[in-house]
């Protein structure tokens, strides 16, 4: 079961690209994040695990401000996330996000899904955007689906289109929120393969997932969330061989 020839060791991590400092977030009375402090380096792959409701989604949604945090600081690629709309738009166009429910635009073809944002946000000419779009579809392995509509694709294919759609914006950072949780088992692998390839190519990634195989194989670091805080963090080896906290041990024993 061990996976010693971990390929990520060949990737050279760069400087800190995401810095979060005491991030707190309330939904009404309920505190979903209770001070999250961590740093992510360039080209690093961070996997977040933890029980349901522990704030994993809330945390990564704060990074591209789909949720606004109320206390603490988040700095992404040198830009601090504040109320300044300009900063938010800049960060959103640099940070890609892949959702559990794919959230493809059902009224647009696969290729139009991919080329929409580059054309409107980056002002890239249509022909050029389509060329890049086709290359990305090639990369995620479904160029033949370009002119279909999302409703005509399988779940695994849809999620790969969603990844291609994010990549079309040439992001520096990719966030994944349980990208394989809505998929049938036989489709999970095709999506994970795309994500592995992406990690090897040097993309900075934060991945919320229950796929421990992926964490072991690809992650540089694993964060364990519970009740809105990072309870434990370390390398995958540390986690799966020698977890320290009781809650981590309990959680791992439940899912492994």
């Amino acid at each position: 079961m061990t996976n010693n020839e971990t390929p990520q060791q060949e990737r050279v991590l760069g400087g800190d690209i995401i810095i979060t400092e005491g991030v707190k977030k309330w939904f009404g009375d309920f505190q979903a994040l209770k001070g999250v402090t961590t740093k992510v380096k360039e080209r690093e792959v961070v996997v977040i695990i933890g029980p349901s409701g522990s704030g994993k989604s809330t945390f990564i949604r704060c990074i591209n401000r789909l949720e606004a945090h109320q206390e603490g600081t988040i700095i992404v690629d040198g830009t601090e996330l504040t109320n300044d709309i300009k900063n938010v738009e800049k960060i959103r166009s640099e940070v890609g996000m892949v959702f559990q429910q794919f959230n493809l635009f059902p009224h647009l073809t696969v290729l139009d899904n991919i080329t929409l944002a580059p054309q409107w946000v980056r002002k890239i000419p249509k022909a050029e955007a389509e060329e890049t779009g086709m290359e990305l579809l090639e990369r995620v392995g479904i160029p033949e689906q370009a002119n279909k509509y999302p409703g005509q694709l399988s779940g695994g294919q849809q999620q790969r289109v969603a990844i291609a759609r994010s990549l079309a914006m040439k992001p520096n950072i990719m966030l994944f929120d349980e990208p394989t949780s809505a998929l049938d088992p036989e489709m999970i692998k095709e999506v994970l393969d795309v994500m592995k390839e992406l990690a090897l190519s040097g993309m900075t990634m934060i991945v919320v997932t229950h796929e421990m195989g992926f964490a072991k194989e690809v992650a540089d670091r694993v964060l364990f969330f519970d009740y809105g805080t990072i309870v434990e963090e370390g390398t995958p080896e540390h986690f799966f061989t020698n977890p320290q906290h009781d809650r981590t041990k309990l959680f791992l024993s439940q899912i492994l």
Partner: peptide, 16 residues
């Protein structure tokens, strides 16, 4: 709501 979130995450403005 996922449609709005996906669009926002891509950097599209509200009017877009």
């Amino acid at each position: 709501k996922g449609q709005t979130e996906a669009a926002q995450a891509l950097g599209l403005t509200r009017s877009q």
